[in-house]
Amino acid sequence: MKVNIGISEEQRKLIAEGLAVLLADSYTLYLKTHNYHWNVTGPQFQSLHTLFEEQYQELAVAVDDIAERIRALGEFAPGSYKEFAKLTTIEEAEGIPSAEEMIKDLVKGHEAIAKTARSIVPVAENASDEVSLDILTQRMTVHEKTAWMLRSSVE
Rank of each mutant, 00 (worst) to 15 (best):
A112F: 04
Y27A: 12
R139Y: 04
I7Q: 00
L29W: 07
G42F: 01
E91L: 13
L29A: 05
Q46L: 15
L133E: 08
R118C: 08
A93V: 14
D134N: 08
E92Y: 08
A67R: 02
E58P: 03
I103Y: 03
P43Q: 09
L136R: 01
Q11R: 01
L22M: 06
S128W: 04
N4R: 03
D105W: 04
K104Q: 13
M149C: 08
S80N: 02
G79D: 05
I135W: 00
V131R: 05
E83I: 02
V107K: 05
Q55W: 12
P122I: 00
I90F: 09
K115T: 12
E111K: 14
T141W: 03
Y56E: 05
L133N: 07
I5N: 10
K108C: 09
D105S: 15
R118T: 14
S152A: 15
H143D: 09
Y27M: 11
A124T: 04
G74E: 09
I103N: 08
S26M: 02
Q46Y: 12
A127S: 02
T146N: 00
A114P: 14
V40F: 06
G74R: 06
I5Y: 01
Q138A: 15
G42A: 03
E94G: 00
E92M: 04
S152M: 07
T88G: 10
I7R: 02
V131T: 08
L31G: 12
L133I: 06
L59W: 03
L29Y: 12
L19V: 04
M149F: 13
V107C: 11
V61T: 14
K82R: 14
H37Y: 11
H37L: 04
Y81F: 15
M1T: 13
A112Y: 01
L31F: 15
K108L: 13
K86C: 06
R151G: 09
E54Y: 02
I70D: 02
L150H: 01
V63D: 10
E53S: 14
K86G: 09
Y30E: 11
D64Y: 00
E94Y: 05
I135P: 00
V154A: 04
L59G: 03
M102G: 07
L106T: 10
V63Y: 02
F45I: 10
T88K: 01
E9A: 15
A60Y: 08
G6V: 07
I7Y: 05
K145A: 13
K82F: 10
R71D: 03
E53L: 11
V21A: 07
E155V: 13
